[in-house]
Amino acid sequence: MDNGLWIFLLLVVAAVWYGRAAYRKRSGIAGAANNLRKLVDRERRGTSEASDLPEWERSLSLLDRHPSEYNQLNMEIGVVEAFVFFLMRHYPEDERIGLLREEASFRKDTVMGFKVNRP
């Protein structure tokens, strides 16, 4: 009986993992996150172009609908800060800069209730 319970638990965990991976792929979260990683890297290397703005906006709007994923990616690579620097470099007159700068200064320390920044 104990072996059957462990096998059932393992199958439940595998199903949850598979379901989460399928959801990320189907909803486009994984693609948006990869695109933002690429854009952040280009911004930090100084090779970004003004024509990248639609890609930034499309990926950010998709992740904005998934707050946990958005917060996790922001904690991991600082997406908001990089977007602020991108706007300041290519679109200094953009009115979103002030709001985004404030958002970047208040980084969350939890993702789905788990502590991310440990002192």
Results as ranks from 00 to 15, higher is better:
2 D>S: 11
3 N>F: 13
4 G>L: 10
6 W>I: 13
7 I>Q: 10
10 L>Y: 09
11 L>A: 14
13 V>N: 05
14 A>S: 11
15 A>S: 14
19 G>D: 05
19 G>R: 02
20 R>L: 15
20 R>E: 14
20 R>I: 15
20 R>A: 08
22 A>Y: 03
22 A>K: 07
23 Y>F: 15
24 R>T: 09
26 R>G: 09
28 G>C: 04
28 G>S: 01
29 I>S: 02
30 A>P: 00
30 A>Q: 12
37 R>D: 13
37 R>Y: 08
38 K>E: 15
44 R>V: 13
44 R>Y: 15
46 G>C: 12
46 G>T: 07
47 T>S: 12
47 T>H: 15
48 S>H: 11
48 S>L: 13
52 D>S: 07
52 D>A: 06
55 E>P: 02
58 R>K: 05
58 R>L: 09
59 S>D: 07
59 S>W: 02
64 D>I: 10
67 P>N: 06
69 E>R: 03
69 E>S: 14
69 E>V: 12
70 Y>Q: 11
70 Y>R: 14
71 N>L: 09
73 L>M: 14
76 E>C: 02
76 E>Y: 03
77 I>T: 03
80 V>C: 02
80 V>L: 01
81 E>L: 00
81 E>W: 05
82 A>N: 08
82 A>G: 00
84 V>Y: 10
87 L>D: 09
89 R>V: 06
90 H>E: 11
90 H>I: 05
92 P>W: 05
92 P>D: 12
93 E>Q: 00
94 D>V: 06
95 E>V: 07
95 E>I: 01
95 E>L: 03
96 R>N: 03
98 G>K: 05
98 G>V: 04
98 G>E: 13
103 E>H: 06
105 S>R: 02
107 R>M: 14
108 K>I: 02
108 K>H: 07
110 T>V: 11
113 G>I: 07
115 K>V: 09
115 K>T: 06
115 K>W: 09
117 N>L: 13
117 N>R: 12
118 R>V: 12
118 R>Q: 13
